[in-house]
């Protein structure tokens, strides 16, 4: 069968995560298998339930967590009208999915690798820790505000030790920043690899420390996207131009969907 990049998949189930009080806001979405030849953790899919109709034009980008011969799994958090509508799908509903899109995270078997996740930024690391051939080289720090059981941490914990920092009072943020700095500095001293995914303020902090300690770091950006295929130029981010001959450093806008979402920290202007 020829692998198709855009397919209509069927919802197998939608499983709520965590006890956040009234209506659940965190979900695992399980869809029928898309029949891709391959994918890399850090890549994403554009997901558009048929229930978006004409009212919600854009699909929503979601990280790929797990794919096997039976299903594709994504995790998502309800934020606005798109994810709200997505949280209303039922088993049997149709969803348009295109992907796998973008470039995934670097994977270096023997390199000490630090995974840094903020909130739903944990999603791509579920696949990453399962794919990594030498998980003992991985360690992970996860900062979050809603309770831990809202996130897919169990399947990560099976493979690697996961350090979590629950942010409940303002002082916790200082703790998180302190830990990020310490971990990034240690990793840089071992000439390791740092991979980060999370909200922009979180990534900015990681970016700052990565540059400060000359860590080899990759960041996965979550810019808003309309097309996911590099066509609309809506998702762009500022990137340093690699032009050795020029004395003055210049920048250009690059599409996060096709040139990222994973970028080397050195290249980014955040």
């Amino acid at each position: 069968m020829k692998a198709e990049r855009c397919v209509e998949l069927t919802v197998l189930d939608l499983v709520p995560f965590g006890q956040t009080g009234s209506a659940p806001l965190f979900f695992a979405l399980r869809l029928t298998c898309p029949n891709w030849p391959q994918w890399t953790p850090g890549q994403f899919v554009m997901v558009r339930p048929f229930s978006f109709g004409l009212e919600i034009p854009w699909a929503r980008p979601l990280g790929i967590c797990h794919v096997n011969s039976q299903h594709l799994i994504c995790f998502f958090q309800v934020l606005g009208r798109g994810t709200q509508r997505l949280a209303g799908v039922r088993s049997g509903d149709k969803v348009l999915v295109w992907g796998p899109l973008g470039n995934g995270f670097a994977m270096e078997e023997n390199t000490p690798t630090l995974l840094l996740a903020g909130g739903m930024g944990i999603a791509p690391f579920v696949g990453y820790v399962h794919r990594h051939p030498q998980p003992w080289n991985l360690n992970m720090l996860f900062g979050h505000r809603p309770p831990l059981d809202c996130y897919p941490v169990d399947s990560i914990n099976e493979r690697i030790p996961l350090d979590t920092l629950h942010e409940t009072i303002p002082g916790d943020l200082d703790n998180l920043i302190f830990s990020l700095e310490e971990r990034i500095r240690d990793n840089a001293e071992q000439n390791g690899l740092v991979l980060a995914c999370g909200p922009l303020p979180f990534l900015r902090t990681v970016h700052g420390f990565a540059l400060k300690y000359h860590a080899r770091a990759q960041l996965s950006l979550e810019n808003r996207m309309a097309c996911g295929v590099g066509a609309c130029l809506g998702c762009v981010t500022k990137v340093r131009k690699t032009n050795k001959t020029q004395a003055v450093q210049s920048t250009e806008y690059q599409q996060v969907c096709t040139r990222g979402p994973v970028f080397w920290a050195n290249d980014l202007v955040l």
């Binding site: 309309a226 981010t237 806008y253």
Partner: peptide, 23 residues
């Protein structure tokens, strides 16, 4: 042309706004 600053696109009801600026 570099185009405009970001955010450049926003989704609206049954549509979208763009200000890409001809990058």
């Amino acid at each position: 042309r570099q185009g405009n600053a970001t955010p450049r696109v926003v989704e609206t009801c049954a549509g979208m706004l763009n200000a890409v600026g001809l990058q």
